[in-house]
Simulated assay, not measured.
Amino acid sequence: MSASSFPPVALFDLDGTLLDTAPDFVVTANAMRQARGMEALTEERLRPVVSKGARAMLAATFPHMAESERHALVPEFLDVYQSLIGRHARLFDGVADMLQALERAGSRWGIVTNKPEYLARLILPQLGWEQRCAVLIGGDTLAERKPHPLPLQVAAQRIGAAAHRCVYVGDDERDIQAARAAAMPSIAALWGYRPESDDPVLWQADVMAATPAALLEPAAWPATAS
């Protein structure tokens, strides 16, 4: 790929990369806290760990509970979230323009997320993405999930491209680890969810992007092997 063209295929994480889902999860967490007579959490408490998944969000929601108690609450957490999914979520600024730029250039794009597939699929029609998203792999689609490379490898296969012809964009270290293990160039999405203790420089992504708008130019993307 030359610096004047986008990658043939762009694969994205969902929560914290394409979609700001933190507001939905804050409402979910606070519904569970309210049911137990607890005060509401602020978004600032939950936001940094959204990309870490349900267990990490439950740890922030119920820090006083034992890990085994919190693990037992995962089904309830997902049920509450499903009941309001997408109601408060929104695209990150610049994502719509970025996806349009890829499509105009003839590139295809898809989603590889650790969110359960059934929940991710509920979001697609809300955004008008059913036909636009070329592949969707969820955290329970396969036997492995990120940081294992299998989800990225299968996404590439399903879209009909070699892994090294794709670029993966994500806001968590697991995203970059999965891409590296799949021999897929990667972009660290610095606009996503990240605890202060996480240093994205240490992830060793091929590119770090401050905003989705930074990816409107083909030259901002890492080169893919021909």
Rank of each mutant, 00 (worst) to 15 (best):
A54E: 12
A225E: 14
P63V: 04
P149I: 07
R132K: 05
A120S: 15
L152V: 04
S2T: 14
V154D: 00
T141E: 02
T61D: 13
S186C: 02
L136A: 00
V27T: 13
A162L: 11
F12T: 06
W191T: 09
Q34C: 00
C133F: 03
S107N: 11
Q34V: 05
D20W: 14
A155E: 02
A66S: 12
P195L: 06
M57G: 10
V74A: 05
A89M: 05
P185N: 08
A210R: 14
F62K: 13
P151L: 02
V26L: 11
L136K: 07
L142N: 07
E217G: 05
E67C: 04
V27W: 10
E39W: 09
P195F: 09
A179Q: 09
P222Q: 03
I159V: 15
A209G: 11
A156V: 02
Q204P: 04
E173F: 11
P7W: 06
G138K: 03
P23H: 10
G37Q: 05
I187A: 00
A89F: 10
E67Y: 01
T21R: 00
V169I: 09
D79A: 14
E130P: 06
L18M: 15
P147N: 06
L215N: 02
A31L: 13
I111W: 01
V80C: 03
D20F: 01
A220S: 07
I85N: 08
H64S: 15
A182M: 02
D140M: 09
A60D: 13
P48D: 11
L152H: 11
L102T: 11
G37T: 09
L216P: 01
P212W: 07
V49G: 13
A72Q: 08
D175W: 02
L190G: 07
S197V: 12
S83R: 14
L91W: 15
A35T: 04
Q34T: 15
E43F: 13
I137P: 12
P75L: 04
L78A: 04
L190W: 02
S186H: 02
A155G: 13
W203D: 07
L58H: 08
F6W: 10
P222A: 03
A223I: 12
L91Q: 10
C166T: 00
D97M: 10
R165M: 02
E67G: 02
R121Y: 01
A210D: 04
R36P: 03
D171T: 14
A219P: 05
A3D: 15
L102I: 01
A54H: 08
V95D: 02
E117S: 12
S68H: 05
T113P: 00
L84A: 06
L84H: 05
P23S: 07
F25Y: 03
R55H: 14
L84Q: 09
R121M: 11
D206W: 01
A178P: 00
I111P: 00
A72W: 01
A72E: 12
R158M: 14
G16S: 02
R87K: 09
A60H: 11
R194T: 10
V9E: 04
A178W: 07
A220M: 10
G128H: 12
L102M: 09
E103T: 15
G138M: 08
P185L: 03
A60V: 03
